[in-house]
Computed example of a mutant assay.
Amino acid sequence: MNEVYINKIAKFLPNAPIGNDEMEAYLGKINDRESKARRIVLRNNGIRTRYYALSKDGEPTHTNAQLTAEAVYGLFDERVQASDVELLSCGTSSPDYLMPSHAVMVHGELGNRNMEVNSAAGNCCAGMNALKFGYLSVKSGNTKNAVCTGSERMSSWMLADHFGKEVESLKELEEQPIIAFNKDFLRWMLSDGAAAVLLENEPQGELPLRVEWMEGYSYAHELPVCMYAGGDKLASGVLKSFSDYHSEEWLIQSIFAVKQDTKLLDKYILPKGVESMQQAMNKHGITPNDIDYLLPHVSSHYFVDGLYEGFANAGIEIDRSKWFMNLKDVGNVGAGSVYLMLEELVRSGKLKKGQHIMLCVPESARFTYAYAYLTVC
């Protein structure tokens, strides 16, 4: 089996950073009213700026595929060009289409050569699943290299216009025309952007990162759906697909809006994160002393103290000085967040040979967790 190295990492963040007070100028106001949830959510999540692939009048400036392709272009130089890539593996939770898949659309944007492509669906773990596919391909010798990406373009899903029919329906029923918190909540949480890594079977560059191992854990066998889009939860807790609704209900009930059960999120996201982290570390025989940098993807700073305490109570306390995050400035870019953290850490100049990095990504959709352990070479 080959060793696998991250030899280069690149990112693309669209347009200028957007402050908290500017968000509704881009996303619009539902029912022409300021959101009551916005200030509460922003106070808890601690995000100060984020990026949208939108103009200020709500018009798209990039597709998800274009964002991803721009990040991939940043990997190429005189040594490695687009025509050298043997595998493209892309993860996102906000593809531009139900079909074709996200990766083939990115491949179409690149227009480089005939090659293998892989699309990883899901939510935040989609970026890690894309990375793992590339890692296993290079490790097994199936390919000598792979480009792996994580990206999101959630802003276009959160535009106020998408909730207009639901508001009109509520008015007709003489009900309060306020969108439910499980939909409004996520309008102030999610951001756009993309990042990409180049995997190769030999180290190249100043400080290549060797991928030692990757692990993934799903708790869907015991826990219900928490975050979803393209469906709605029935009173029984069963998720009903958009394809089983009448088409007029898609707009009236905002079926395609991204929704989250915040009670389930609060109850399970940290305990299962601690449990899976402990399982991964035990499997590979590492301790907190073997981690120099922890890159935890969290959707909100609200969870940081609880995650630290959960780790400490489980005997895997990782000193806060080792935690590296950029949520405040970049926002929650879902499947792309861990790539963006890693890119910023590499670019910071802090890394030294022999250090170890742990990537830690939770996904609340039905509670999935992914981990990667890297060595600076």
Rank of each mutant, 00 (worst) to 15 (best):
L251Q: 15
L251M: 09
T287N: 06
V85C: 10
N313K: 14
I18N: 01
F256Q: 03
K240Q: 14
G91E: 12
H102K: 03
F324I: 03
G91V: 04
A121L: 04
A370R: 02
G134F: 06
E59F: 00
T262V: 14
E222T: 15
P17M: 01
K139R: 15
M105E: 13
Y5K: 06
N15K: 09
V338N: 05
M158C: 13
S191P: 01
R347Q: 11
M128A: 13
A229N: 04
E175K: 14
R366F: 06
M23G: 00
L170R: 15
Y373V: 04
L54W: 01
G310V: 13
L359R: 01
I40E: 11
L251V: 03
E202S: 03
E34H: 15
A53C: 07
G19Q: 07
I318Q: 07
N114V: 05
E202Q: 03
A126H: 12
E202C: 00
K171C: 12
S300T: 10
I30Y: 07
E212C: 04
G127H: 13
V80Y: 15
S35A: 06
E212H: 06
S156T: 15
A196T: 09
M128L: 12
A194Q: 07
E206V: 13
M115W: 08
L98Q: 10
G315S: 11
V333C: 08
Y228C: 11
S137I: 10
G19W: 00
L67Q: 06
D244F: 13
Y5G: 02
